[in-house]
Design a protein around this nucleic acid. Sequence first.
DNA 1: TATGAATGAGACTTCATTCAT
DNA 2: AATGAATGAAGTCTCATTCAT
Lengths: 216, 216, 216, 216
Amino acid sequence: MSELDSSTRESCRWRRRKQDRPAEILAAALKMFSMKGFAATKLDEVAKEAGVSKGTLYLYFDGKEALFKAVVTEFVLPQIAKAEEQAEHYKGSIKDLMFKLLEHWRINILQTELSGISKMMIAEAANFPDLANFYFENVILRTRHFVANLIELAIARGEFRACNTDYAARSFLSIMVFSAIWQHSLAPFDEDYDIKEYLNTHLDIFLRGMLKDDQG
Amino acid sequence: MSELDSSTRESCRWRRRKQDRPAEILAAALKMFSMKGFAATKLDEVAKEAGVSKGTLYLYFDGKEALFKAVVTEFVLPQIAKAEEQAEHYKGSIKDLMFKLLEHWRINILQTELSGISKMMIAEAANFPDLANFYFENVILRTRHFVANLIELAIARGEFRACNTDYAARSFLSIMVFSAIWQHSLAPFDEDYDIKEYLNTHLDIFLRGMLKDDQG
Amino acid sequence: MSELDSSTRESCRWRRRKQDRPAEILAAALKMFSMKGFAATKLDEVAKEAGVSKGTLYLYFDGKEALFKAVVTEFVLPQIAKAEEQAEHYKGSIKDLMFKLLEHWRINILQTELSGISKMMIAEAANFPDLANFYFENVILRTRHFVANLIELAIARGEFRACNTDYAARSFLSIMVFSAIWQHSLAPFDEDYDIKEYLNTHLDIFLRGMLKDDQG
Amino acid sequence: MSELDSSTRESCRWRRRKQDRPAEILAAALKMFSMKGFAATKLDEVAKEAGVSKGTLYLYFDGKEALFKAVVTEFVLPQIAKAEEQAEHYKGSIKDLMFKLLEHWRINILQTELSGISKMMIAEAANFPDLANFYFENVILRTRHFVANLIELAIARGEFRACNTDYAARSFLSIMVFSAIWQHSLAPFDEDYDIKEYLNTHLDIFLRGMLKDDQG
DNA sequence: TATGAATGAGACTTCATTCAT
DNA sequence: AATGAATGAAGTCTCATTCAT
């Protein structure tokens, strides 16, 4: 991996690329934190995973907590922006959009290290109140409004039946969040677990429950 | 258990309460572990919460890991037995039974410390593989079969539409598990969160999605 | 063991014999201390070996150190008295007396728990200076004088050649002490070790080295 | 080793002396272990003695037991090699060689910290069976064969009388081992103890007991 | 007298953090 | 910028000792 990458960057293959260091460290930290949790992750491991020395971590981050917070904030916001963008330009039924969103979620989040962030926040919310608050405001609330607006739109269009859009959005989002959490906890023990099937089934039930009777 | 015991120990107000110690310690440990996670919980805190000294913990449990495992195994199995029993004697529609189950879940689990166990297992599954496996087999699979059977019955009765019962059960259960996890993570930041409303909305959607068109 | 003993004492078989407690505890302590050393011996083990509760130890001894000191002082002095008495009444050559002494040593000390005391003192001398001093004065010096006197007598009798009796006594005694130490350390690994053969060979060499040339 | 290294590390007066640390720590550990025994030695003391912090010990050794084992194995084997080498090149009587060996033992072992190893093994053999076994095989048996061969040679040469060479070797070695043990236990209380006199007397007796009558 | 539950000081060990190189 | 040896605070665990019964 490093061989190929380095050859594509400038001409100095033999020297380590300093501009990539933060990203490499963040990726390593995301991997370790989401695997083992905050406390059980040793900075030694993160450093080794990132291919740097332990001291180097401190050149880029103020410490373990700061690294943890950086992982959450750096990786999570771009994803939300992407989702919102995807929705904005979408022409078609809300039902189809929701399907698309889940598919995107499955491919770009669930099946990557990014899904670990959900588990990390769940596990460490009580130990990092300010981070949890940031996450809640900027991730949870923002996506909830986003989804609630979609549902409202669907109701206005006559696609969904009238309902409490806020709680309907919570329901939809809990499908997504739970799938991410599961991925990083008990899914490894759940032998015949098929993410796609799970998401489709759950979305199917959700949509049948939301659509107006004359739809579907 | 408490009724009988209390009559025999009335006289010993001070120390020497060997019979009660394990339960007191387990309760304290559940509280601390579910609040702060395994690693972030100090045995000092558990001891203080239980009203004993640090050394006393070791009279009843072999160490921190053993205590953690005991918390999970001791508290979780009785709850499942209760749920199964409740279902067994139920006369009425599956729809109503599901409503009852969620209500029981809300009152006896979500609003007690017991809901912390779900978060603990999610957070520590990777660090306690054998415990996670035990939990998966004895809690997840068992409840999943239990719910899948209910759904199958509902389909046989013509109450629910035909579907993949295994994944439908996963959907239903993920509602429950997620509500527990939420309770111990971001719910404190979710100011206008109403558990009852959340559960009802989600169940409503679920049932609308499951019921045959001529039902409801 | 307890059945027989108790039946021979008074009539109360069912009650524990309080007058034996200290001796039972000392015997148990000697066993454990000589096996595992002072620090590695737990009072729990001593109590269990003695068949009493841990708290009972404190009724008879002031603590672990006091118990250790009692083991050394209680067991060791009677043995010396015995040896001295044996020598006093002996009619015969010093050579034969030394053989008898070693035989007595082998049978009554080496092959019993008592030999552990030597190892204990060697191992713990630096940690128990006052005990070591007591042991040195009352055991080492006393026996050294005793043996030196024997050698002096043998020289006077023309049985042994003239020599530094003090150091000759040290040599003889180091045979005895070393055999005891070996017994409780590496003898278990020394598969074809035969105590009797060892003592006889060593004594044989010693005597050949001490006897006047015309003796033997 | 020290010559070369010292020239390369002259400049680093402060920290960062990875090359020397293990030896410094081992020396400190040997001192403390042989003084106080395994259990009574605190790693704090070893660290202080070695001039490093407690944590540093763990950079070089896996823990207290590993440190103890390292002390035994690292210090003991070179000594045996030296003794064997000394004997191999010796021209002269076995009697003189034994005198030389004891002199070497006195100067290079007894009067240095190295003699503490004997006491340590005696004291802790039961608590470290695998280490004791290693010590027995590689130290005791090896030196016993070495000495037995010398005695056999002396007999073949007509220098010593015929005897059980194995047990004669045990006798000779027990002189050496005992002198080391004594050094680290009761010698401090033995005010007029003179190592040289002790060894010479004991060797004198041993040799008189071993030599053929026409020798000496 | 005897018990054994309870204690808490003290040891080993880990690991985030620092800093001279 | 990067290293990694060194640190020491903090946590887990043990066990001699106490004391109410």
